[in-house]
Design a binder for these strands. Sequence first.
DNA 1: CATAATTAATCAAAAATATTGAACATATTC
DNA 2: GAATATGTTCAATATTTTTGATTAATTATG
Lengths: 297, 297
Amino acid sequence: MNPLTLEALQVLDAIDRKGSFASAANSLNRVPSALSYTIHKLEQGLGVSLFQKQGRRSVLTTAGRHLMQQGRELLTASDTLVDSTKQVATGWEPRLRIALDTIIPAEMILPLINRLYEIQPNIEIDLTEEVLGGTWEALDYDRVDLAIGAIGNAPGHKGIRCFDWLTVKSAFVATPGHPVCRHPQPLSDRIVMQYRSVIIRDSSRHEAPLSRGILNKENFIHVENMEQKIQAHRLGLGIGFVPHFRVEQYLQKGELLNLSVENPYTEEPLQIGWKMSNRGQARNWLVERLKLIKVDD
Amino acid sequence: MNPLTLEALQVLDAIDRKGSFASAANSLNRVPSALSYTIHKLEQGLGVSLFQKQGRRSVLTTAGRHLMQQGRELLTASDTLVDSTKQVATGWEPRLRIALDTIIPAEMILPLINRLYEIQPNIEIDLTEEVLGGTWEALDYDRVDLAIGAIGNAPGHKGIRCFDWLTVKSAFVATPGHPVCRHPQPLSDRIVMQYRSVIIRDSSRHEAPLSRGILNKENFIHVENMEQKIQAHRLGLGIGFVPHFRVEQYLQKGELLNLSVENPYTEEPLQIGWKMSNRGQARNWLVERLKLIKVDD
DNA sequence: CATAATTAATCAAAAATATTGAACATATTC
DNA sequence: GAATATGTTCAATATTTTTGATTAATTATG
């Protein structure tokens, strides 16, 4: 049986901060003998003496100092736990883990999160970037509470709720100097297949990766996320589809060209999804604001 | 005032593990109403309800589950603290942080640490590699409790105790094919200076770095530690001094040559040092065994 | 240097708190 | 529908904690 109590740690802490049993007792609205009692009980329980007499005062032993110092961490952890429990009780979860599909740039939802912080300053936000299947998987395996911008269908079986969110136009891009530009448009699959394309690696860890837009090509470069893919296109490393709204600036400046192709992307809406078992207010609040976001494109 | 007690967390934990108030009470050698009482008091203190009736049993609310799960971490932390306090009381510190100068390979002291684990299985060892001034500095700034293999003088002022430990012979090495080998030996400084040398970066963070064996050369490569320096020499990237005992194998196999130079290293003994304020048994034990180590070289 | 003031420990009495067990209400199980 | 199991309530009881007076030792003060 653990002889330690948080109350005893508070006493230990107060004695150290105030410098004496007397003033510690005063600050705790108790009487010195009450603290003596608490400390003796703890010493007896541990079988370790925490104070030793030095003149008319008691000073901490090495063990006492160790217990006091480490105990403070326990005390703050305990305070934090009380806070977060109260927060949970109000329906606001103390932590919200979000998977952001790489199609969506963080800048798009960070302002929302800032507004969330204004309402719940202590909430802990954990943002993860995921790719394709990885976005649903993160939700499915309870790595996150909310998935933003997932593509395709939610993993059916489990209690997942989702809805269609944005529909993002795709652009097939290449640099102006790229040899693919010399072909007549719209480009056929046969032509497209001749050039290196840029592919984002699926971030699924368990399920089979979703493949998107991979036309059985031998010629491709794998990258980690959408930002890398866009930069790869911009620097002429390959050709391929990207969300139109994310390359608008480059199209306007002429750094990239939007080529027409025979088989354009079938436009599927991005999804927002969460576990039905999660009834957190923060998740709910975010979902409601996300519904208002539009892409003018 | 924090309404949380470790005892209440234990009750919460037992109820969850046993599945009911009744069997939890049984496992705690108490009566169900006693647990009811504890839980109610906690609920009242928090202003949060932790259980809700579901049929004839009580089940955790979301807040209750949160408190229970996080509380378990608090409980194990508390157990650990009790253990380490008892350990401190015996004079054995629960953690020993060691700075190992890069001259000394870890293999040289790991067997000792293994023997320490046999005596104190729960001791936490924190081993850091340091270079030149960094080794003393780590001690000086209380980043470590014990410094092994430091070179030069201890930072005077503070209450640091140290003694001369090993004296390590230096060898000036180069690969057999290195052009420096074509010069007649002993090599003069003027000759040595013509070739690239390998220098270990001082790991000091605050004090001015000690420079050792830097002959105002323009031509050098900086590396992080002795192992990297030795490998750099072995692969012919540069020439320089290394501890003889660390390259013996390469000298024997003929991968490196020990060249004689006009100005050999002045041999200073490596030091072992610690703060006098640290009276830990583990530190003392290690220092005593370290005294017995010899380099047969 | 003597006196006053502090400090912590001790102890019996008082107060506060926790535990018990019986009684009860409600739901499952057989 | 009887038997069983669950958690709560409540008054009585047991235990623990707090108190305040007393003591002993040390330090500050005039």
